[in-house]
Design a protein around this nucleic acid. Structure first.
Lengths: 180, 180
DNA sequence: CTGAATTTTCAGAAGTTTTTGAAAACAAAA
DNA sequence: TTTTGTTTTCAAAAACTTCTGAAAATTCAG
């Protein structure tokens, strides 16, 4: 079949599974980098998410065309985030890695990690600066804004805590309540 | 007063307003950069948030020690995000900038912008790859995971839409419902 | 213990994003 | 129209982040 026809057929019958996997890994990485998360870390995560079996570091390196050091580093980070787990196979020295596949658990782990890394330090600073006294009219705007942001952030913090403690069904219920 | 005593007094009577402002601008910038937003853009935003009056580009440059080009670029971006507005003073050629101070509006604008930039492209890709057929057992994991993520992302998308349309009180109500 | 398999580390290289500042463009006043 | 104050642009520099790969460390079987 001539290349041009092959191309048309592929387009007609939608993309192949391999193309789909590629696209998924690519997009997951792109989205993550927009969220301040290392692109490669997200790609490793995506690869393991859609892998039917646990993979070795070598297989990850091979699939994503990355170096040993890079693969190792990002697998460690994913273990640290609780998004990937280790599997030890009897009689083998190699470590195998597989991703947490329950989406609610994935999202919960991400919330825990980012809340600790990003929201909590901000809350601490807001508490500190909330103590300054407005000594002049020019400072009043400052104390006002800080008060508002503090209220809002505390709300967000408590909401996250509640979400983290809850289970997937409870999230669905809240979601249904939100959209009526 | 000897420096060492001055330092003790400051510590005792909490930080000064100027120190508080500095700290706030710094932290706002740091948090933003962890969220994939330009650090300087967030610092300009913080500066205008706590400024009692609208400021010129020159004043922003001066306060944050940044170049003219940088100040201009980030002020444009903030206008684009709807977080900062222009003020034209009669008889003056300079442009003045002031920040949107209603926190609910600020958060809503950020949600609108990031949803468009980050969530929507991912939803599009998920729709595309959801069409691939599982032709072999190895592809089943892929289609399963994509199905799950798609469900979850669509929920998130709808929840965001509802939140964006809602007002601050409604958010508070949902929050109260979430934390009991 | 020894040695082979495997994982971890880290200094420098590569890549990416942000910043600068001078020149160009623009807009109002003279 | 020209002058002057202001904003915008953009190529190059600086700063920052990520990646590589070889060497060191670790682990385990024999």
């Amino acid at each position: 079949m001539l290349p041009v026809f092959k191309k048309l057929c592929v387009a007609q019958y939608s993309m192949t599974v391999e193309e789909g996997k590629q696209k998924f890994i690519e997009s997951w990485g792109k989205m993550a980098s927009e969220w301040g998360i290392n692109r490669t870390m997200a790609q490793v995560h995506a690869l393991l998410l859609i892998a039917p079996e646990a993979m070795t570091a070598d297989e990850v390196m091979e699939c994503l065309n990355i170096s040993r050091g890079n693969a190792n580093m990002n697998l460690r980070a994913l273990l640290d985030w609780g998004l990937v787990h280790k599997q030890l196979k009897a009689g083998e020295r190699k470590e195998y890695f597989y991703a947490e596949k329950d989406m609610w658990t994935v999202v919960r782990q991400i919330m825990i990690h980012r809340k600790k890394r990003e929201l909590e330090p901000m809350l601490k600073v807001l508490d500190e600066v909330a103590n300054v006294e407005a000594t002049c009219p020019e400072s009043e705007t400052f104390t006002e804004v800080v008060k508002d942001i503090r209220l809002f952030s505390n709300k967000a913090n408590q909401t996250l805590d509640a979400l983290i403690k809850s289970d997937a069904n409870w999230f669905t219920n809240v979601f249904l309540h939100m959209v009526r």
